[in-house]
Design a protein around this nucleic acid. Sequence first.
DNA 1: TTTTTATGTCAGCCATGTTGACTCATTTTC
DNA 2: GAAAATGAGTCAACATGGCTGACATAAAAA
Lengths: 165, 165
Amino acid sequence: MADIKMPTRLLFLREEELRQGIELLYFAYRDFTRGPDEILSEYGFGRAHHRVIYFVGRHPGMTVSDLLGILRITKQSLSRVLGQLVEEGFIIQDKGERDRRQRLLTLTEKGVELERQLSQNQRERIARAYRNAGADAVEGFRQVMLGIVDEADRARFDRPREPGA
Amino acid sequence: MADIKMPTRLLFLREEELRQGIELLYFAYRDFTRGPDEILSEYGFGRAHHRVIYFVGRHPGMTVSDLLGILRITKQSLSRVLGQLVEEGFIIQDKGERDRRQRLLTLTEKGVELERQLSQNQRERIARAYRNAGADAVEGFRQVMLGIVDEADRARFDRPREPGA
DNA sequence: TTTTTATGTCAGCCATGTTGACTCATTTTC
DNA sequence: GAAAATGAGTCAACATGGCTGACATAAAAA
């Protein structure tokens, strides 16, 4: 449908624009993860541990299924890293009250501290990019990124409300 | 510096905004890579092969060093996947004319076809997101993403010029 | 001529994904 | 109340793709 009477130079621009989009995602992600990776290696942890710590910090009391749904990995893969994090005292598991089969996950103080250390690096990087680009650009960024995310997960990004507002 | 007389609710909004930024990157990247991953597995390839095919397609005749610089992995890691791609006829290596130590990398026809198949999925995803968000949003997306990328690599995203313009 | 550079190679390690099979406790359904 | 479904965990084996270290070769640069 895009090739109905479109001059070659416009096709070229479009192709180039889309490829730059692909590469922005690749380079941004590559650079975005390097900071935390370095910190993690001091603890003998990897990126998988970071993801677990991040999302448990973000959703205290979440279940193992919730976490599996976000990470989209198998429970066997998760269990390895989660087990280590529990073992080493970064996360605690409590039986659910409503459903006692569930294991509700929460960061310990130690876990909270590591989480902050890890995400601080990323928050700073994002903050700098937002500040330099300006509010309108940030809104555009949000919209495009939301469009790239699978429809099923977009609801996670509903507008935040002020606490008590 | 951000904590000079800033009301709690604004701090909360800022924190929430930054965390959403972190998560947009995580979810977008996760979903962006799944399509190609499925195609690749039919060939017995992985994401690493995709990256090599992509960048060689993007920069025909690039050297091994160039590629290592982009991927930021060791030559031993690269050699595994690159070797397979050469072996199976997706990439050819030619000695450099100016410097005969170099191996200049180019996609074969077969390689070009696989590259298109792989990136088509991603181009479509980006195109849809761009279309739905609109031109201004795309510009904002570009600016923010560029701010996230390490300064050293931003020059890769200089504005494209029309061929022959 | 010596040194440096671009590339390749062998060997082994680690992190993190996968599948498949099975257990256990608890909740839900009939 | 018995049977089925669900949430979670475990063991074993395997694949991918990072890593380090040591060494080899050809060509360019000093």
